[in-house]
Design a protein around this nucleic acid. Structure first.
Length: 288
DNA sequence: AAGATTGTTGCTTA
DNA sequence: TTAAGCAACAATCT
């Protein structure tokens, strides 16, 4: 459940520790993670220098010398973990620490050995995450093919655009918020939180959302994502930053993961339903 | 021990 | 063509 705030946290930390560092060697332990291009991945990254690490949608992107890029997706359980030379990761005090301590471990898929003696690990419990080597052109083509919507925290995401995208859409608003073609970065956690803040019921059809409601959802999207970045994301399951530390936004969650508990606002019981094979929690009283 | 969990792709149907 | 719905993917926890 790395969503935009979690990926942003990881990417900004990676950029700080990796910029200008040289890759000495790369070891792929799980071929599937690099789509079985093991020799290419290991061979072409050798002796490249990392220029910067940034993000598009939920994809971390590492730009390298030689016009190459490593881009990928954490999916549900992917993690980048960074260990400087004589420092072991300690975990953040959560049950998932077992996956972070003693790296490399059985969930380590790719290891980057850096010239200064530090290591970057790509860990992934469920093996849905992936990394891929791209040239600049290939990366551009890939991103184009994805038809990603605007970044919600930039000027590209306007209220007018958002309102227009809801017109005639016969899908629940929750489902639409998860659609990366409409706007990128929102996943199951923040969709629930955004709609709670906007006081809109997740099952409401997009075409029936009023302009006033759309504006609330739009503003809540920006507010919630920014706030979650400030808290370094949400660790509800196994998200960790590159130093193995948990995100703190779990303290701020109003509805996600709180099915059958009391609404903080009205004290009635929150309701848990399933939409598009995903759980949704909302307050039947506060959200109309 | 079966069911829940979740981001995205790709298939099916309309 | 596009929209909508849903199985599948993997591993772990409950």
């Amino acid at each position: 459940m790395p969503e935009l705030p979690e990926v942003e946290t990881v990417v900004s930390e990676l950029n700080k520790v990796l910029a200008n560092k040289k890759i000495k060697a790369v070891k792929v332990l799980t071929p599937k993670t690099v789509d079985f291009f093991v020799a290419k991945f290991q061979g072409q990254l050798k002796n490249k220098t990392i220029k910067k690490v940034y993000r598009r949608a939920k994809m971390p992107i590492i730009s390298l010398s030689g016009g190459l890029f490593v881009a990928g997706h954490l999916k549900m359980t992917g993690q980048f973990l960074y260990q400087s030379k004589n420092k072991k990761l300690t975990g953040g005090g959560h049950p998932e620490d077992a996956y972070i301590k003693n790296i490399p471990n059985k969930h380590t898929r790719v290891i980057f050995d850096l010239a200064d003696g530090s290591n970057l690990y790509f860990n992934d419990i469920r093996k849905f995450g992936w990394l891929k080597l791209f040239t600049k052109k290939e990366l551009e083509n890939y991103l184009e093919k994805m038809h990603y919507g605007p970044e919600p925290l930039t000027k590209d995401f306007t209220l007018e655009y958002f309102i227009e995208k809801l017109i005639n859409r016969n899908v629940p608003i929750k489902t639409l918020l998860l659609d990366q073609k409409l706007v990128v970065g929102i996943g199951n956690i923040y969709a629930a939180e955004i709609l709670f803040r906007a006081k809109v019921k997740p099952t409401k059809k997009a075409k029936n959302i009023t302009k006033a409601e759309a504006q609330k959802i739009y503003q809540s999207t920006i507010f919630i994502l920014k706030q979650a970045i400030k808290y370094k994301g949400t660790t509800s399951d196994n998200f960790a930053d590159i130093f193995g530390k948990s995100g703190n936004y779990i303290k701020k969650l109003k509805v996600y993961g709180r099915g059958d508990q009391k609404c903080f606002t009205c004290k009635n019981n929150l309701k848990k339903i399933t939409q598009g094979q995903r759980s949704t929690v909302y307050c039947p009283v506060c959200q109309k």
